[in-house]
Amino acid sequence: MAAEQQHPTLTPAGAEGHGIDPNIGGKHIHSTSPMLLLGVYGILVFLTILTVAVTKVDVGDFNIWIALAIAVAKASFVALYFMHLRWDSPFNGAILIFAFVFVAIFIGMSVMDSHNYRPFMHAPTPGTAPY
């Protein structure tokens, strides 16, 4: 019964413009400022150009790791600022991180298995296909 009284009444959305406090049920909700959004956008564009540029540099096996590091950095910026995780409940971020961790385990185990078969694949018995 008392709970009903706590429901806030619907306040009109009001005129367009600033100075409105985004709040849900009286609780303040963070809204990202335009300058921050544009700054993150600039970083993402820069990292996109960077990831194309670094493929011109040959560092052997490290090329893939550089590409992945840049991709993880970009994904982190998207998650933290565009997806608002920086100001969210940490539990939401934990779900994202654990999903990535499980995918990494999945891929890591599968590639380790393939790695075990590598000698067989690269020294095929004569007369058989090197599959």
């Binding site: 959305a13 985004p22 809204s31 990202t32 335009p34 998207v78 565009f82 608002h84």
Partner: peptide, 23 residues
């Protein structure tokens, strides 16, 4: 990639506009 990042920016900004009631 740039097209998707740009549309991501506009979507994040749209969320801000919804929060501020900028219809």
């Amino acid at each position: 990639t740039l097209v998707l990042i740009t549309s991501s920016l506009t979507m994040a900004w749209a969320v801000r506009c919804a929060q501020l009631g900028q219809q």
